[in-house]
């Protein structure tokens, strides 16, 4: 069959494909050298040395672990809390539109402002969090200065900012669900939690998986609040792979190694997301077929 529409979409696909392929190949080419901003004209081809160096670089491997921990914890917490809130507000009540507007506030805030605000809140000597703790006789906690706590403080800020995003999308999906299956189940004598577990949640599954994917991609790339709140410290306890790449480039001026880190992170992220995507969207279809 001859489909003439292909003359319209193929050039566009080709153009985008070519651009990303050229850029990727250029980055790969740069990672095979030892380019440093401090040694102009003295770079040479070093093959896979940068990749081998990354494999044995304990700092990079720890940073990767933190990236995974942060991504999984942030996505999971935002999903659970966001879903719980959206189920609670999934009914008609006065002021629902105001609630929805307020939910938007953290999402539209610039990350730099979010980071600074949380830094003030978490200030160990005159921050609001420690004041609140002192009222109930706890603390003081050194939120950003204690290496065992700092990553969780950053999680707190990320969860605060992005849970509303999950709430908004889940609310929209809930509102578009047909009510008949739920009512039918209730007529058949199902309790509310059974309705929720067996009817509502399975119907929401698709929407939630998409939300989880978007949040996971964002969490892997998270940089702003890390940079503003801790810059990877104290004692490297909040240095993700993203941040390590930044430091390699802009503190150590080791451009090739920094790109190697970015390249490996990109590959790992793509593989992980492709697996997730297949899990979410392909499997049910095959099951149905």
């Amino acid at each position: 069959m001859h489909d003439t529409t292909r003359y319209f979409y193929r050039p566009v696909v080709l153009l985008f494909g070519a651009i990303s392929a050229v850029l990727t190949l250029y980055v790969v080419w740069l990672t095979l050298h030892n380019i440093s901003l401090l040694r102009p004209g003295r770079e040479s081809f070093i093959g896979l040395d940068n990749y081998l160096r990354l494999l044995t670089d304990g700092r990079a491997i720890n940073a990767l672990g933190r990236t995974v921990l942060f991504t999984v914890a942030a996505t999971a917490a935002e999903l659970v809390i966001g879903l719980a809130i959206s189920l609670l507000v999934d009914r008609d009540f006065r002021g629902k539109r105001i609630v929805r507007a307020i939910l938007l506030v953290p999402i539209v805030m610039t990350p730099v402002v979010v980071g600074l605000t949380w830094r003030f809140l978490l200030n160990p000597t005159n921050g609001m969090m420690n004041y609140a703790l002192s009222i109930v006789g706890l603390g003081p906690v050194d939120w950003l200065g204690d290496p065992n706590v700092a990553l969780f403080s950053l999680l707190l800020a990320d969860i605060w900012q992005w849970t509303p995003f999950v709430v908004l999308l889940a609310m929209a999906s809930l509102e578009s669900l047909p009510e008949d299956p739920q009512n039918a189940a209730r007529v058949d004598g199902a309790r509310e939690w059974q309705v929720l577990w067996h009817i509502t949640l399975p119907a929401l599954k698709r929407a939630l998986l998409v939300v989880a994917l978007i949040r996971a991609i964002d969490a892997v790339k998270a940089f702003d609040i890390f940079y503003i709140m801790t810059r990877g410290g104290p004692a490297l306890s909040t240095e993700t792979l993203n941040l390590y790449g930044y430091i390699s480039a802009f503190t150590n001026f080791d451009i090739s190694y920094s790109l190697t880190i970015a390249m490996v992170l990109t590959i790992l992220t793509n593989v992980a997301l492709l697996l997730l995507y297949n899990l979410a969207f392909r499997a049910p279809k095959q099951g149905q077929a």
Partner: peptide, 13 residues
């Protein structure tokens, strides 16, 4: 040691 023992809270940052 001197900062941990006699320094202010939050000195790590």
């Amino acid at each position: 040691r001197v900062l941990r023992d006699y320094g202010p809270v939050g000195v790590a940052n």
